[in-house]
Amino acid sequence: MALATYIIGQTPFPEFTVVLMLDDLQIGYYDSTTWKVVYRTNSDSKYYDEEQSDADTVFCDMYFDMKDRAFHLKDHLNHTDGVHVHQRLVGCELLNNDKPGQLHYWDAFGGQNMEEFVFDIEKRAIQIKMPWVVAWDQLKRLHKNFMYENVYHPICIKTLRRYLNIEKNNVMRKVKPRVRLMRKTLTDSQGLQISCLATGFYPRHINLTLFRDGQPVDDDQITGGEILPNGDGTYQMRKNLVISAEEVLEGHNYNCAMKHLCLDNKLGITFDAECGPGSFRLFVVITVVVLVCVAVPIVTALINLRRKTHSAGSVTKKSESHFISVPM
């Protein structure tokens, strides 16, 4: 993926920048200050001259196209003078058996999605998903088709294959999440805040859901939910839910469900209404569905799970936070 940014107006930043990503790993950077691309590989790489030539071809053309487009959009939307930002995200993909996939394209101006299309390499044509704000004429459309078929898509696939080979140990790794359940008493209301934290996972795609009595909690009741980087190249996500003192007494069951590429873990947290709001019992139910990672023997998993559950029960009496690490 190449994320390009063109800025209209005076800022301390370069007028035009491009960040080149392989999945969620940054592999290159380019801007209008030096007009040179900086890759993660050494500058004496045997591909250095070719990479610089490809960057000049793609990014320079992108610069002039985005500059022209940005001023058209500015006038079309009746924006006044000042700072305006036009961004473009373009990317290609490799399918199974190393087969080149489609090329995707998104344009945004002022933080609003403006245009979107897919270049289908088999049909050799642009398929529009969001209508153009400022339409192309037929000649420009033919030019765009030619450039995406013969220049952009081939260079993108070539770069993808090269850096996938170089960085495969990074982008293909799988790191299972650790899940932490925490509670905090709210002194002003005598309610509680439940926090569900998944951390240390890779890749970054994860689904973390909070449930009340088996039903998903509405998003407007939850805070957090952003995927944030850790310092070691893994990621974390935290979701928080505030429970009033009245809700605690009602004895609802609250669960945190997590889905990741390797594992599907479910953690349940229950408050016992009969014992009052000071009571806190943690019940852990872990369901492991191995999708990509190597499975371990069932007996070993059960033994480790029993140890983990016994350890979590002992910690409950001393601490209000719990780590669950699922064995592979």
Rank of each mutant, 00 (worst) to 15 (best):
L89P: 10
L261P: 05
S195R: 07
L197I: 08
Y39I: 13
Y30N: 00
D98R: 15
T187L: 04
T33L: 07
R178D: 12
Q127P: 08
T185E: 10
M328P: 12
Y6S: 00
K317N: 06
P100S: 01
V133D: 06
V38I: 13
L95C: 04
G9A: 02
T209M: 04
S314N: 05
K168F: 06
S195T: 11
D220A: 13
E226T: 14
G111R: 04
T309A: 05
G91Y: 01
L197V: 12
I8L: 07
F117Y: 12
A2Y: 15
T316R: 13
T159A: 08
L192A: 10
V288P: 08
L305A: 13
M237T: 07
R88L: 14
I194R: 13
A301E: 08
V217I: 09
R306T: 10
M258D: 02
M258F: 14
W106R: 06
V242W: 12
S279D: 04
A198L: 01
E115W: 03
L261S: 14
D213T: 02
G111E: 03
N145A: 09
G82S: 01
L181N: 07
P177F: 01
L302F: 09
H205V: 02
C60L: 09
N78C: 06
E320M: 14
A257L: 04
P177C: 02
M66D: 06
S189L: 01
R238I: 12
E50H: 09
H310E: 04
L302H: 03
V90T: 06
E274G: 09
G111V: 03
Y235T: 00
N265F: 05
D68W: 03
L228W: 00
V179L: 15
L94N: 15
Q10W: 09
I227Y: 00
V37A: 11
C262A: 14
V248G: 08
L73Q: 02
K67N: 08
G214P: 03
M130F: 14
R161V: 06
I128S: 01
G231T: 12
L95W: 00
F283Q: 14
W136S: 13
I166P: 04
D272L: 02
W35D: 06
F109N: 01
N230F: 12
L302I: 15
V134F: 00
G200C: 00
Y47L: 10
R204K: 14
M182N: 10
Y39Q: 12
V242E: 07
Y30E: 01
K176F: 08
I222S: 03
N169P: 02
E116G: 05
R141C: 09
Y105G: 05
I8E: 02
I298E: 09
F117P: 07
T270P: 08
A273H: 11
P131C: 03
D81P: 02
E93L: 13
K129C: 14
Y105V: 13
P277R: 11
F59I: 00
I157L: 03
V296D: 09
A108Q: 13
M147Q: 10
D31W: 00
C196T: 11
I128F: 09
R141P: 07
T11I: 02
